[in-house]
């Protein structure tokens, strides 16, 4: 089983996860081994089988369009756990590059 089956650097980029070289060396064979295990699924016939969307039958779930103040976080509560806040906002590093 080739351990380079998954382009782990590409997947890590998709997942927004910085990995060290040591982590890549550890994870690559582990993920390869798991995917080999998972390959067994291919032999299961699912030709005319619908995919599970839900295990318990339920229809569209709707609620009355009313405010429930006790379920709404105040601005203060919402910001209380923020790593960085400024005034009424979450503060984050630059998102848009400066014009050259």
């Amino acid at each position: 089983m080739p351990t380079d089956r998954i382009d782990i650097r590409h997947v890590a980029r998709l997942a927004r996860l910085a990995l060290t070289d040591a982590e890549i060396a550890t994870f690559a064979p582990q993920l390869g081994s798991l995917m080999t295990h998972v390959d067994a699924l291919a032999e299961l016939d699912t030709e005319r089988v619908p995919a599970t969307a839900q295990v318990v039958p339920s229809r569209n779930v709707q609620r009355d369009d009313v405010l429930r103040p006790e379920t709404i976080l105040s601005r203060e509560a919402a910001l209380a756990n923020a790593p960085q806040a400024q005034g009424a906002y979450f503060r984050v590093p630059r998102i848009i590059a400066e014009e050259g």
Partner: peptide, 19 residues
Amino acid sequence: DGVRYGLRVDGADVGEMYE
């Protein structure tokens, strides 16, 4: 992702901060 709660490790831009 380091924005609203929990740990944040700073980076040069927001993408690096996430990673």
